[in-house]
Nucleic acid binder design. Structure first.
Lengths: 252, 252
DNA sequence: CGGGTCATTGACGTATGTCAAAGGCCGTGG
DNA sequence: CCACGGCCTTTGACATACGTCAATGACCCG
């Protein structure tokens, strides 16, 4: 299946941006098998409390990591795009602590934990790469905290757009100045801890300032530098490196 | 040094709460060597951008993980107490993405990455345990996002107190109803994304509701169940398990 | 006794939420 | 091909939780 192969390739590329891997190790990733599933918008891929035996690799679509309060209030704490293995954590913590829900129609592969564990065992450098990916995830979450906690709506929104822009660019889904973002304003509100109404007003000011254009579900960034400055955005936390980290850890 | 040994013991216990380790593996942790340092309140332990070659194990004190904006606004995205290895991530990502700053006078050990890598190489189950610890850190961050993003001040504050209470209890520093919290109200504000003034008012309501007492830098929880309910607190994300995860991953 | 840090209080400002209604867009079905 | 319905966006009026500022008070330590 063509799209499955491209998802695995995207995942491998993501790992390669941060970790040094041999050809054999990359092949092992590309040879991963998993069953393909589809989720419709606003449907769960996995629910909190569930015991999972596979991790989800997104082939196409957009997925949110949801935390939820007793009273039903929701907060998206991370978004995942094509090529993301969105619950790599579950390999070491198989009890889901959050909800993964499709924001748009999403195709994904369920890659059995047994396969990922086998890879981690056979190729210590892959174990290291997986661990590193979880550490990058933590860095993104840490940014998400200051975003919701300290930044004003415009700044917050700009920061999110910058993050999605760069991640989309590196995933080969577009460029930082032109990329898809298939989320409703209500979804953006859940990401930004803003009401949908305020997201609307905030996006309007960004458009009025001629920083972005949003037609349909596609973002055009008219002035990247300005947007990044407004969003207090420094890309280093994403760890898209010119030179990936060396094989320091497990492969002596 | 007695206190150094107890810090390593606390760290080992933390790992054992989540991962199954052999006696030999635990011994390897307890045998770790590191230079002891002390940091005064509001001084950096490590700064963003720094390349580090050691991870910090807290012997005594309180440390915050700070994100900072260009304009100087700060946000604490995690707190670390005695027994926490507060930048285990740095083993796989040696370029610090955040600031670690002592909130109170803090003693810590710098454990060289080379030592931790050696352990991960010799004992795959320890590599797994380290990775798992980073995954738990991500779960805590995810909770921190919804805390700052969606919860009202009282709820937010209660949630934080519950988290620190349980972590202190499991670290052997007190009980969930009586534990030290050596942070000023300004520090709590940085954790909660509230102003110090509003933290003050919020703590007052918690006291007026007879849920807690705070004398000096020590918290007494008068009604744990009520506090947890008010804080929308469900401890499962902390992964303090009755039965730790089995050795699934790296030790075939 | 004096200086510094921290907690507390009150008055006031504001960014953002809530509610409710209207308008656009698009697919579906008759 | 048109009409309907559903989802999303947009708008306006109004409410409020929280921030800011500034002063005072408490405590601790030298």
């Amino acid at each position: 299946m063509h799209r499955v192969a491209s998802a695995l390739q995207r995942f491998a590329d993501r790992l390669l941006a941060r970790s040094t891997l041999t050809q054999e190790e990359v092949e092992a990733i590309l040879d991963l098998k998993g069953a393909a599933f589809q989720a419709r918008p606003n449907y769960d891929i996995v629910s909190p409390g569930e015991s999972v035996h596979a991790a989800c690799l997104i082939v196409a679509g957009l997925v949110g990591r949801f935390e939820q309060m007793q009273d039903g209030a929701r907060q998206i704490t991370a978004v995942h795009i094509a090529g993301d293995m969105c619950d790599l954590h579950s390999v070491v913590i198989p009890t889901m602590e959050w909800r993964l829900q499709a924001l748009t129609t999403t195709t994904y592969l369920r890659i059995p934990h047994t396969e990922l564990r086998r890879l981690a065992r056979e190729f210590p450098a892959l174990a290291e790469a997986f661990w590193r990916d979880c550490a990058v995830d933590a860095a993104m979450l840490s940014q998400w905290v200051i975003n919701t906690g300290r930044r004003e709506a415009i700044c917050r929104c700009s920061h999110l757009l910058c993050e999605v822009a760069l991640r989309s660019e590196y995933a080969g889904l577009g460029s930082r100045t032109s990329f898809p973002l298939e989320a409703t304003q209500a979804h953006l509100g859940d990401m930004l801890a803003l009401s949908a109404v305020h997201v609307n007003r905030t996006l309007q000011s960004l458009r009025r300032m001629k920083l972005i254009g949003m037609a349909g579900r596609h973002v055009e960034v008219h002035d990247w530098d300005e947007l990044a400055a407004l969003g207090d955005f420094d890309a280093s936390y994403l760890q898209f490196l010119e030179r990936p980290f060396p094989r320091t850890l497990l492969s002596a």
